[in-house]
């Protein structure tokens, strides 16, 4: 049969995570459809229809889907259960919220955070903060997967495929949207950036994050990231947390400043191509995973790095 990928979008723009989920979905079954659910999201559907490997886009347009609330969204997807063998979503906060609900409605066990598809029923995924990799075979007739986006490259674009409306049956109103506060940033998005500059407790304050780390990130065209300690201390907003329970990143270059390297932090960045650690403690565990370690006070080293970079 076919596989259905749930599109991640904000109503206007299709998130790059969707293109990555499509790459994984093709490995499960080459007949990939994408579901765009929301209100007035024709532009998103048009974009999804151009992803290479996608045979068809389904669009569900309804006010009840506008805020991507999990209860109606899961109902919609589970309602398409007969038509698909597998359901795939990126392991974003929305994918993680809705897909287990879909899996339970279909009475199947979800496979979370897939990093490799070995066969249509066999998947690899990290457990214990990435210290163990588990390969599982699903005995369920239908598969429900969330995909770790850093492990799959985005499907490229090609000519557009057809877009079809799909019927949505409203259910009971269990939840309603109240508000959304989105952190605004002109910097690249953390999970897809080529370079990430991350700060930890060693930064000391929100002001230092802005004054010391942000200029380096901007000089490199990098995204900003943070450890949990930095987020908990209020230096930066929660959406910058990298780690087991935050975002998983795998950039070409990850620069960790004033981060000790706890297991939970490493879980979110140890697949980066090149890791740089700047820490004044030569014994900090972060040095055990760093390709380049600089034992230094970050307040001196970070401005020096910026000064040593080629101009422009």
């Amino acid at each position: 049969m076919s596989v259905l990928v749930l599109a991640e979008h904000n109503g206007l723009v299709l998130d790059d995570a969707t293109a990555r989920a499509v790459t994984a979905a093709i490995l499960v079954d080459p007949d990939v459809h994408v579901l765009v659910a929301g209100r007035d999201c024709g532009a998103v559907a048009a974009r999804a229809a151009m992803l290479a490997g996608v045979a068809k886009v389904l669009i569900a347009d309804d006010g009840d889907l506008a805020d991507q609330l999990c209860e109606p969204l899961a109902g919609l997807i589970a309602g398409l259960g007969e038509r698909y063998d597998a359901f795939v979503a990126p392991a974003t906060t929305s994918g993680k919220s809705v897909m287990p609900r879909v899996a339970a409605l279909l009475d199947v066990m979800q496979i979370s955070d897939v990093i490799a598809v070995e066969a249509p029923d066999r998947f690899r995924r990290p457990i214990y903060a990435g210290n163990i990799i588990q390969t599982v075979r699903s005995r369920d007739s239908k598969k429900v997967l969330t995909i770790r986006t850093s492990a799959f490259s985005p499907a490229p674009s090609e000519h557009a495929k057809p877009i079809e409306p799909v019927n949505f049956q409203r259910g009971p109103h269990l939840s309603s949207f109240v508000a959304k506060v989105m952190a605004r940033s002109d910097r690249p998005e953390l999970t897809s950036a080529r370079i990430v500059v991350s700060g930890g407790r060693g930064l000391g304050s929100a002001e230092n994050f802005e004054a010391v780390l942000a200029p380096l990130a901007d000089a490199l065209g990098a995204a900003l990231g943070a450890s949990r300690a930095a987020v908990d201390a209020g230096f930066v907003s929660n959406d910058l947390q990298v780690g087991q329970t935050g975002k998983i990143v795998a950039p070409d270059l990850y620069i960790a400043c004033g981060i000790s390297g706890a297991i939970q932090h490493l879980a979110g960045m140890k697949d980066s191509k090149v890791i740089v650690a700047i820490n004044k403690d030569p014994e900090a565990p972060i040095f055990q995973v760093a390709d380049y370690g600089l034992v230094a006070d970050l307040f001196e080293a970070v401005p020096e790095i910026r000064a040593a970079m080629p101009a422009g």
Binding site: T93, S176, F177, V178, A179, V181, S237, N238
Partner: peptide, 10 residues
């Protein structure tokens, strides 16, 4: 806590 910020629901 959602990607990109926070969301409030009832």
């Amino acid at each position: 806590e959602v990607d990109g910020g926070s969301q409030t629901v009832r």
